[in-house]
Every structure is written in structure tokens, then in C-alpha cells.
Amino acid sequence: MKIAIASGKGGTGKTTIATNLALTLADAGTNVQLLDCDVEEPNCHIFLKPKIESATPVTVPIPKVIEEKCTGCGICAEVCEFSAIAVVKKKVLIFPELCHGCGACSLFCPENAFVEVPREVGAIEKGSADGIIFTQGLLNIGELMSPAVISEVKKSAGDPDVLIIDSPPGTSCPVIEAVKDAEFILLVTEPTPFGLNDLKLAVGMAKALNLPFAVAVNRSDVGDDAVAEYCRSENIEIFLEIPNDRRIAEAYSRGEMVVRELPEYLETFKTCWDRIRAFSEKETSSKPNSDGTAKEA
């Protein structure tokens, strides 16, 4: 089973939930793998302190001109929708950070004057911690294309009983890359106006992707009832509530795991997992299209 932990708003507790859920499952003997897909600011490693066994660069293909074949016709620049190629005085200039790797330039070059070469944009690291198989991605500083790194992190998924994806915050391209093939999304929020606004955006995203989801409310007693009321009126289930316990904040600040420092929370995460499993077993019997065509439906 593949589940993603996501949120519109940052700093709501995605990483806390992803790591503690993974550890709770591993402690119970479940074969679990955790993917840290927040490649701009990956933090799972701070809490799990994994032993990293391998590191591999992530590359994206970028075009390179074979000068002898190029006639300077300019078709490559015309077909590049991302302004990653310009042709000036019959000379091809390539701007690698802007390249999306679509292949249009090499496909439409009449002289076959392009080859594609790898360009490093980040790395993935694999290892393990406390019985959890672990992979994280790291985007190089100054790079734009985090989805490329996320995609590589996801390719490292083996065939565990449970795969947990810690997603980046937000609702745009990197998040979609992280969650798109999950079987279930747990949307983390907090009971404040910002939390509610961003939860609504995240719900919109989950619906656009046609993925089943439920909500986790962190620091559930800090704000007002608006998140709970919204979930009730939209028939969205709340699978996890974590109170605003100062001891959790302190454990978090030091990079410690909640279920290790405060074992009374093991049951909270177990219950959450039981709800996710029960929900997904119910879902599989009535699964909607998974090709993302829901928007047009």
C-alpha cells in the first residue's frame, strides 16, 4: 500500500507524521519504506538518523549541439516552448536551467544535430533506520527542477508492504509529482485560518487527481473549530489528531522521534494506520479512474 503525507501549508507536521507512522509500523514488524520527497528541504533524516548506504546523482537530459552538423536554421529555438534555446547569428545557445527535457529540439532538428547529455540537478540517498527502508532526494541549490529529483526518489521504491511518501508543501508541480500515484493521501493541517485555507487547496488538489484522502489535524487544540466544521460539512474524515503538547514540540526541536520519547503516542499512530487501512480496503472495491481524467468527468 502506497500512502502520501501532504499539506497545502508548510510546517504543519508532515514529517513528524510520516516518520512516526513509519516507525510505528516498523516496530510492529511491518515491512515499511519511507521516501522523503521534500527534496528542497528534506528533514526526515534529522529524526530517523538513517545509515546512508548509497548516493546517486540525479540527472536530467539536456541537448548538446553537434557543431559540424548544425546549419543554424533556428528550428530548435522555434519549437522550444521554454525559451531554453536561442539561435543568434546561426549559433545555438542553450540555457540548461530552463530545459524541461521534452526532447523537441532533437526530435525536430532536420540535421539530426543534437545529442542529449546528462546534467546533474540533485542526488538521491538510500539507507535504512530502525527497520525502515529509507530514500531521500536532495535538489542542488540554485536548481529549479525539483520534480525530476522527486521522480527519481520514487523510482527507488521497492515492493514493501507499506510505502510512505513525505511530500513537499503546497499544491503545484512538485507535490503532484510526489503524490500522483499514491493510493491514499493523508492531508495534514492545523486548526487555524491559514491551516483551513491551505487544507481547502490541498483537498482541491486531491480531488483533481482523483485520489482518496483523509485529514490529520496537528496541534489540534491551538486554534478554532473551523477545520473540524469544514471536514464535517464536506464529509471528510479526520484520521489523526495530535494535541499541542509542548513535549512533542521539544522532542521535535531536538530531532527526536515522538513515539520513542513519548511512547503513549504509539497508540495514536497505530489507530491512524488502522483507519487508513480500513478505508483503503473499502476503496479498492469501488476504485475510480486512476488516469487523472476526473476533471473532465
Binding site: G10, E40, I141, L144, S146, P168, P169, G170, C173, P174
Partner: peptide, 9 residues
């Protein structure tokens, strides 16, 4: 926005 990627740059 949070992060170090495209919208932040």
C-alpha cells in the same frame, strides 16, 4: 514560499 526551488528563486 517555503523551499529553495522554482517559486523561491
Amino acid at each position: 514560499s517555503p523551499g529553495v526551488g522554482c517559486p523561491v528563486i
